Amino acid sequence: MPNEAGRPNDPTTAHPRPDFPGQEQDPPGRTEAMDPRPDHGEDSYRGSGLLDGRRAVITGGDSGIGRAVALAYAREGADVLFSHLPDEEEDAQETTRLIESAGRRAVPVTCDIRDERECRALVERAVSEFGRIDVLVNNAAYQMSRPEGISAISTEQFDRVVHTNLYGMFWLCKMALPHIPSGGSIINTTSVQAYKPSPHLLDYAMTKGAIVTFTHGLAQTLASDGIRVNAVAPGPVWTPLIPATMPDTTEFGKQSPLGRPAQPAELAPAYVFLASSRASYITGEIMNATGGTPLP
């Protein structure tokens, strides 16, 4: 985004840099309580009609990357149905406001994607509201840092991570496909953790690696149907999940070559591009947005 002088911003200083104030939240976390407040593109994202008339479904659209993508899609001309957990109602209301302020339809749906029946109801609601699904964004995820390593990962936590990050994505893709027309797309959210797993996020990193494999395989399966499947792999991103699941956030993102975490607004353009006709020959790809972290 240009600065006042019309020159490009320095990416190392374009957004807040650590050290951040100490902060801790109960999962799933709230945007309002974060310091600094995440930037979702509220004051910066400008649409250009790239998704005019599209109907999109976004999981975890109440905050973080999901909210930024919902805002960007709406400003590009798409109607948006997004899922959120019951505890995320306040954040969901703000996402709804942002979508509607762009002149598009917002359909917030309370849904725990760990439940197959709730995933089915989510797809049915989308079809009832929109008639079809042009873009499915599998973005909702769960993590919980365990500095002690594998010995501290309970079966309950492992189940929650796997069911949120993998089962929900699998069910929603399977259920949505009959309603995705040729020209539609699926975009999954993986992570730099898929390639460079942090020991304290072992179970989370494992699921993100599986999402890369799933994306590659499903893209080949659906190519002949004219449906594209891609993924975005962020590095550290400043979202409510961070203070809600990590014991110390003061230096979060400092390890990236750019010296800071991404803001959700910086990820949204990747999801817009992959959903748009400008990416018509791109499928089975992972778009990395890691702040310069080298990948294999």
Score class of each variant (00 low, 15 high):
M1T: 12
P2A: 12
A5P: 00
R7Q: 14
R7N: 14
N9A: 15
N9P: 10
P11S: 08
T13P: 07
T13M: 08
P18E: 09
P18H: 04
Q23Y: 11
E24W: 15
E24T: 14
P27I: 08
P27W: 15
P28G: 11
G29H: 11
R30W: 09
R30D: 11
T31E: 13
E32W: 06
A33S: 15
M34A: 02
D35E: 14
P36I: 04
H40G: 11
G47R: 06
G49K: 10
R54W: 03
R55E: 11
R55S: 13
V57G: 01
G66D: 08
V69P: 07
V69Q: 10
A70F: 03
A74N: 06
E76C: 03
S83I: 00
S83M: 01
P86Y: 10
D87W: 01
Q93K: 15
T95Q: 05
T95A: 04
T96Y: 05
R97Y: 13
L98A: 02
I99D: 02
A102T: 05
P108T: 01
D112F: 06
D115A: 06
D115F: 05
D115N: 08
R117S: 14
E124P: 06
R125C: 12
E129D: 10
G131Y: 12
D134C: 11
D134S: 03
N139P: 00
N139T: 00
Y142H: 14
Q143D: 09
P147K: 03
P147M: 05
A152F: 02
S154D: 07
F158Y: 13
H163E: 15
T164K: 00
L166Y: 12
K174F: 01
A176K: 02
P178N: 12
H179M: 09
G183V: 07
G184F: 07
I186V: 02
I186S: 10
Q193V: 05
K196G: 02
P199S: 12
M206F: 14
M206S: 12
T207L: 11
T215Q: 01
T215E: 01
T221E: 15
L222G: 06
G226I: 09
N230I: 00
V232Q: 04
V232D: 04
A233M: 12
P234D: 08
V237M: 04
P247G: 09
D248S: 06
G253D: 03
Q255G: 12
P257W: 06
P257N: 04
L258C: 04
A265G: 11
P269A: 10
P269I: 07
F273S: 10
R278C: 04
A279K: 03
I282H: 09
G291A: 11
P294I: 03
P294Y: 09
L295M: 14
P296L: 04
